[in-house]
């Protein structure tokens, strides 16, 4: 991403405010969307961390991946987590996503302390409350997009008809209704990531977590993905937390948290927020660029067998 295609349209603050106001608010009284950044304590936090530590033990040495992180994220927020490599972003996301447990500290998910949850309980939370999107898409190859999206509903114990209905709705939401029967190998990288987002949405979670979702995508496709996240956030009131290395991508969020050495160093509201729906028309399409999609092939599951 050398040239910045976003320059011509630094979204005006007025536009942002207008949108924020029209956004349906999920939690009554939560104004997080309208006033991003550290919010007042009367609001109800969907995610609250208190003095969170994560220490990895590698033989003799200890790696302090997170060293006392305290933060609150409110319903309807759109947070970009930034920071240099090794700063603890993925560690944080894994804990937020209930894939991992903190070494010390408290994690309140919708006001419920989950640090002490059992593995089975955490699996239930991952299934119902949280949608996770990975950099590597992690789709099951040799399985159609529809079945990939259905996967979480299987573990939710939904009846078969309901599963397919939800999966189709989810795919429609990311604009892939017509690709339901395609296999991952028949889809572009951007489309694969959209299938992965549809999968994250299928059990109707209140939170979507994404660890570098655009890390494997070219700039235009990245904006398309951000468009989807913004729509989920605005139209469906889903709280979005995503990790990115790129400032331009972070500009689509409402709030940026910057990490360094396992600590949050900066927590600011986005000024000059970008809106993908406005940026996209200004970007050259593939045909116009007249060059190949530079999507990097990503390893999908089960390719080796």
């Amino acid at each position: 991403m050398t040239e910045n295609p976003l320059n011509p349209l630094k979204a005006p603050v007025a536009a942002e405010a207008a949108r924020a106001d029209s956004r349906p608010v999920k939690t009554p009284g939560a104004l997080a969307g309208a006033a991003p950044g550290p919010a007042s304590s009367v609001d109800k936090a969907v995610i609250r961390l208190e003095g969170l530590h994560k220490t990895y033990h590698l033989g003799e040495t200890e790696v302090f991946a997170l060293r006392g992180v305290s933060l609150e994220i409110f319903a309807g927020e759109f947070v970009a987590v930034m920071g240099s490599s090794g700063s603890g972003k993925s560690t944080l996301m894994n804990i937020l996503g209930c894939l991992d447990k903190p070494t010390r500290g408290h994690y309140f998910l919708e006001d419920v302390e989950v640090s002490g949850y059992s593995k089975a309980q955490l699996a239930g939370l991952r299934n119902r409350k949280i949608g996770f999107v990975f950099q590597q898409f992690n789709l099951l190859s040799r399985t159609s997009a529809l079945e990939n999206v259905e996967l979480p509903t299987v573990y939710a114990g939904l009846p078969v008809e309901e599963r397919e209905k939800r999966a189709r709705e989810s795919l429609a939401l990311v604009g892939l209704a017509d690709r339901a029967e395609h296999h991952p190998s028949q889809l572009s990288g951007g489309q694969q990531q959209r299938v992965a987002i549809a999968r994250a949405l299928v059990n109707r979670p209140s939170i979507v977590l994404a660890d570098e979702p655009t890390g494997n995508l070219d700039s235009r496709t990245s904006v398309e993905i951000m468009d989807i996240f913004q729509k989920l956030n605005t139209d469906h009131g889903i709280t979005v937390v995503l990790v990115t290395h790129e400032q331009d991508i972070a500009q689509y969020a409402k709030r940026i948290m910057e990490f360094r050495d396992g600590r949050m160093r900066r927590d600011v509201a986005v000024t000059g927020r970008l809106f993908a729906s406005e940026v996209l028309p200004t970007l050259p399409t593939l045909e116009e660029e007249n060059k190949e999609d530079n999507v990097q092939a990503s390893p999908n599951l089960g390719n080796r067998s």
Binding site: A120, G124, N127, R128, N138, L140, Y155, R199, L301
Partner: peptide, 19 residues
């Protein structure tokens, strides 16, 4: 071994150890 990533994914979307 071959399906390690598949297993990881299934767990990430809510599969319990038992399932």
């Amino acid at each position: 071994t071959e399906r390690t990533r598949e297993i990881g994914l299934r767990m990430a979307v809510g599969a319990t150890e038992a399932s």
